[in-house]
């Protein structure tokens, strides 16, 4: 497994987010809490969507929030946020979003194995709904196939 570890700090279950910006910022706060990014990374992720639109909603119910590698990234990291109430990102097909992944990568190119692992997880179309319904961090880690410390689950 090459997915970054998912410590408890990187998992937020049932976050209250009034809109997509708050949902993305919740993922940014989780990346900051787990030591993967500085607080400014949230702004960078929001800016990507303001600039390019809601393309980060890559499947029904799922947003993959991220920005470019820059000085706000401290380490490769992944965060999983489930929302108490789904929010709209303005996507024509995949709204509303109930699960937000936050991704921080240190460099372009070094992360493709992690991306392949994310694809492995979500190519099972039942996973998004199961994540949205998860009630503990362990459940989330089990669905994502990762351990809290980076060891193979």
């Amino acid at each position: 497994m090459t997915l970054p570890p998912l410590p408890d700090e990187a998992i937020v279950i049932g976050a209250a987010a009034a809109d997509w910006r708050a949902a993305v910022r919740a993922a940014g706060a989780a990346l900051t809490a787990s030591g993967a990014a500085k607080p400014g990374y949230s702004d960078a992720m929001v800016r990507m969507i303001e600039e390019h639109g809601p393309y980060v909603v890559i499947a029904p119910g799922l947003a993959l929030a991220h920005a470019r590698p820059d000085d706000q990234v401290l380490d490769n990291g992944l965060a999983v946020v489930t929302l108490a109430s789904p929010v709209s990102f303005g996507h024509p097909h995949n709204d509303p979003v109930s699960v937000v992944l936050g991704l921080a990568v240190e460099s372009v190119g070094g992360h493709l194995e992690s991306i392949a692992d994310i694809a492995n997880v979500f190519n099972d179309s039942t996973v998004i709904g199961a994540l949205a319904a998860a009630s503990t961090p362990d459940e989330v880690r089990s669905l994502m196939g990762v351990a809290s410390t980076g060891e193979v689950a």
Binding site: Y55, L64, A67, R68, L103, V108, I115, I118
Partner: peptide, 9 residues
């Protein structure tokens, strides 16, 4: 947008 997330998937 960044050449990282959705384009990688």
């Amino acid at each position: 947008g960044a050449g990282i997330g959705s384009s990688g998937i």
